[in-house]
Design a protein around this nucleic acid. Structure first.
Lengths: 208, 208
DNA sequence: TAGATTGTTAATCGATTAACAATC
DNA sequence: TAGATTGTTAATCGATTAACAATC
């Protein structure tokens, strides 16, 4: 944790984690950087460099213990704790996120949905109640919340972001295609479906 | 198009495109790399380098014409054509994608949904009919399809991928957290929500 | 011990930034 | 023309890969 680890390395951590989960499921209990390399398509050298950003998890002549390494990476990623989320915008994506039980299994719990459509207010989606967006500040005052998910239409995205930041939210998972402006101490993770689709269309144009 | 353009550059194209759309909406008709730099947070130097991968779009002493540049990037991205999609897996994410009209506006049209839940078969989601997954091959034989969207549960993802590749699909938009194996001539664009969420949890752990 | 494989340093490669001549 | 800003070459920075001594 001392010297800053590059974004590129961190982006690979979830992939390592996933691969180690698979290895564990296959009852493989040790693995070398070379075997991981074959499986994941990174070079063995890169894999060893990556792990050594965080300290030596392996043993010379042996490799890595799958369960141990998985546990380490899991902890690096901050999994194993539980996080409380709210989802703002109960449209298709918002509801999909609220419905998705896979996240809850890893400790990410959606505690409330917000929407400014009065017809949705007081309905529930898989047991999570939908509140009117007007109640956002009041809710956040009374309920400790780690992550705000922004799944409102893009015109509303910045305003909602300002409001949650104002209310003290420090982490945002943004599904709107806008680049959001936030105070320095707020971290954003963007999921930009348009960008992703445009990349695909670039490939279609340039690989055919 | 001659010398290979790096992935990093291509990933920025959609951002340029979006920014130029905004500038156009604000009725700004010219822009310098320096002004773009302030707006987007890339260096002016990088912006000029990026554009020059594709040829000179600017004019010395003047800058770039917003409408012209937007048109160029739009065309680089392969937008303005229309693409036909199918979505396999009519769960939350699948339905969200089928419902989302924003993509259709840019030429991406979902023509069918597939699911292996017999209760969903023959229902429609915003006018798109849901077919049983058994009919996948038959459908693809009779309907020219550019992109297959994989939004099935992860255990089914590889099998479905094999089937669509077998049926001749060359482009896949993958929403399952698995790394999919595909033939060399098939391109995949991954949207990995778990990875994205894990990144956020990494930030929570390491920035607090 | 001998073989295997790490941790780590050094070399390479590629991407970003800086600088500036060309030119509108 | 003078000022502005590009296109492009050169310098820098960072990330990936290669190499190998340390050691299990």
């Amino acid at each position: 944790m001392s010297k800053k680890v590059s974004e590129a390395v961190i982006r690979r951590l979830p992939k390592y984690y996933r691969c180690l989960c698979e290895l564990e499921a296959e009852k493989i209990d040790r693995v070398s950087s070379h075997k991981l390399s074959q499986r994941m398509g990174f070079t063995a050298s890169q894999i060893r460099q990556d792990f050594n950003c965080f300290g030596g998890f392996g043993q010379q002549g042996y490799g890595y213990n799958v369960t141990e390494l998985k546990k380490q990476i899991r902890s690096l990623l901050g999994l194993g704790t539980s996080y409380s989320l709210i989802v703002i915008g109960a449209g298709n994506i918002g509801q999909a996120l609220a419905n998705y039980s896979g996240f809850e299994r890893e400790g990410f719990k959606v505690n409330a949905l917000f929407d400014n459509n009065p017809h949705l207010a007081n309905h529930t989606v898989s047991g999570i109640k939908i509140l009117h967006t007007d109640q956002l500040e009041e809710y956040l005052q009374n309920n400790l919340t780690d992550i705000a998910v922004i799944s409102v239409p893009q015109q509303a995205a910045q305003e909602i972001t300002d409001r949650v930041c104002q209310a003290g939210i420090k982490f945002i998972w943004n599904f709107s295609p806008r680049e959001l402006k936030v105070p320095n101490d707020v971290a954003i993770e963007n999921v930009n479906l348009s960008d992703s689709l445009y990349m695909l269309s670039y490939k279609i144009k340039n690989e055919t």
